[in-house]
Computed example of a mutant assay.
Amino acid sequence: MPSDERLEVLGEIIKVFGAGLELKPLLNAIAAAVARLTGADSCLIYVMDPTSRELVLYGASSPHPRHIGRIKMKLGEGITGWVAERQSVVAIPARAYEDERFKFFHSLPEDRYEAFFSAPLVASNGQLLGVMNIQHAQPHEHTREETELLLALANMVARAIENARMYVEAKQRAKHLEALFRLARVVDNHRGVVDEALTFIGQMLEDILGVPTCRVLVYEPEKQRFQGPRGMRIRPSHPLFDRLLRSQGPFVYEDSVGVVPLRFGRQCVGAILAYADGGLDDSTLSLLGDLSTHVAAFLRTILLEAEVRRAREALEVRKVLERAKWVLIERRGMTEADAHRWLQQTAMQRRIPLRQVCEAVLIAEGLWQTEGDDVAQASRPPADAPAE
């Protein structure tokens, strides 16, 4: 292939990488572009199923609709499984079908192809993601230059699979959290940020219990603290901290504070602290305990809603980030790692959100949508890029 045409095809591959995050259509498009770039007759991309630990055919340069998702190999099975198990490259110039490791499928025309190049697809953390096979119908010597190109492409495919999986996980997490939120949603008359919700519940309890001060705190296990409105916190160093995590019911602290741990099932989600001069009488403390189940459910609902919102925002940021990286790779000649690093460093240096930097890149390149369009629309590829 002439160098000008090769550069053109390489540009198409870069566009494919930035075009979408749905795995199967993405890998089909990548396989077709890789086959064209290398002059191969076939490119097959297998992805490791993390559950079954099998290699599943996910992408093919030639139309194989009946086989996508159905052809599977175990580690060590066939040349593909051998490459996956050892994470080593195999290059056979001719009669690959005579190799003792070769596995016949009979339904694939590639079974009789002569040359076979297979490379593992490895994540940045060293985890096996899959295998990419390049095949020629006629004998073909894999030159050093071509081998380096194929390994570079394999690395790009691995990054694409990583990004696609993160996208799928973020989308599934958002759906899962939204489902949990709907199940847990028993009160819908107050929606807002967590701090506002805590203030609202505290004021409501003050009215119901007839106490001058009532505070509701949410437990943040990742930060090891109970967090309340207006900066109120209970940290592990406070005598109440361990007792709140251990206690199953209301108790009195220092004679004047009624304390109720809030539990959703076995999980501690927060606490109620009610202050009264002279302390709380038994009936008030008992009522507070009775109300705690409903408050815990309400608090759990608010926390789930906030987490769903964060998951959705993370998903939108991921879309804009991938779009901005594609722009820097395509139009600025950066590698994916350099593009990602540049976006992060720019955000830190200017002390602005990463999403804002990504949007600025798209605006600068004239790829941002008109006013009123949401981020999902802005994250779409240009018209000449392959569809997802």
Rank of each mutant, 00 (worst) to 15 (best):
L198M: 02
E148C: 04
N189Y: 14
D207Y: 09
E206V: 05
I161Y: 02
L183F: 15
G192F: 05
E162Q: 12
A197V: 12
L205F: 15
L183A: 10
R173M: 05
A174K: 06
N163Y: 01
L205G: 14
R191I: 09
L177K: 07
T199I: 10
D195I: 03
A197W: 03
Y167T: 03
L209P: 15
M166N: 11
K171Q: 12
A174D: 02
K175Q: 14
A184N: 05
L205K: 14
D195T: 07
L198Q: 03
E162G: 06
D207R: 14
M156L: 02
L205T: 15
M166S: 08
V157G: 01
A197G: 03
R191L: 10
A154I: 02
L198D: 00
R182G: 05
Q172R: 06
N155Y: 05
Q203K: 11
L153E: 00
L150E: 14
A158W: 02
V193T: 09
D188C: 09
M166H: 14
K175M: 12
E162H: 07
A179V: 13
M204I: 12
D195M: 04
L209N: 15
N163R: 02
M166I: 11
E196D: 15
V193E: 09
D207H: 06
K175E: 13
E206P: 00
E162F: 05
L149C: 10
R185E: 01
Q172N: 03
V186W: 06
A154V: 02
E178Q: 12
I201P: 05
V193M: 06
G192N: 10
E162N: 07
Q172H: 04
Q203W: 01
L149V: 13
A154C: 07
V168M: 09
M156H: 01
D195V: 03
A170P: 11
E178H: 13
A158G: 08
H176T: 02
E169F: 12
I208S: 15
R173E: 10
A164K: 13
A158L: 04
L151F: 14
D195C: 00
A152H: 15
A174T: 02
M156A: 02
I161V: 02
Y167D: 09
A184S: 12
A152W: 13
L198S: 01
L183W: 15
A164Q: 12
A154T: 02
L150S: 12
L150P: 07
